[in-house]
């Protein structure tokens, strides 16, 4: 059982201080901000390191921050043996939102990453099956972005009713 501060210290020691940022001032759980290109190594480390053992990815969510002009991915991790939780966040610029996949580390991420791609247009490099999952393959736009406008016609059918 480790707190977010302890986990942050461990990660900073391992990967270098400047890559991580601990946010704690929010009312809910604290989180650690990870640089996009680092997420894969960090995830692997978190899963395999004795004493951490984050063997379960509870949830992976895309988020759109229109004010910051950014897209984010939030990872909620949990360890079934150590019983501690950790929230990781990756923030990327909206124009070039891509980050390495963690599908090979937690299979849960497979469909969740597809969903994040489907809804936000975040690309996961190295994902084995990077297709849309809920919307049709030829749907235009990314519905959960805050500035999303639905297309007028889909295959000749009127979308707005």
């Amino acid at each position: 059982m480790k707190t977010a501060e302890e986990l942050h210290r461990i990660l900073a020691e391992k990967f270098g201080e400047e890559l991580f940022e601990l946010k704690q001032d929010e009312p809910a759980a604290p989180w650690i901000i990870v640089k996009a290109e680092q997420i894969r190594e960090v995830s692997k480390f978190l899963r395999d390191e004795p004493g951490l053992r984050f063997d379960s990815l509870m949830c992976l969510s895309g988020v759109h921050y229109p004010k910051e002009n950014a897209l984010g991915v939030t990872y909620h991790l949990f360890s079934t043996s150590e019983k501690h939780k950790l929230t990781l966040k990756v923030i990327m610029p909206e124009e070039d939102a891509h980050l390495p996949t963690v599908e090979q580390i937690w299979k849960t991420a497979d469909w969740h990453e597809r969903e994040a791609y489907d809804m936000f247009g975040i690309r996961f490099d190295g994902h084995p099956d990077p297709r849309r999952i809920l919307c049709p393959d030829d749907w235009e736009g990314y519905p959960l972005r805050k500035d999303y406008r639905v297309q007028e016609f889909y295959r000749g059918m009127k979308v707005e009713y």
Partner: peptide, 30 residues
């Protein structure tokens, strides 16, 4: 208050988690 939470409960099918982000308005941000 502005902030976010991930909360999970056990439904008959398993772990149902809600990831809710609030921006201090009455409308959910996410």
């Amino acid at each position: 208050p502005a902030g976010e939470i991930y909360c999970r409960t056990e439904t008959p099918r398993g772990e149902l988690g809600y990831y809710i982000i609030s921006d201090k308005s009455t409308t959910p941000f996410r």
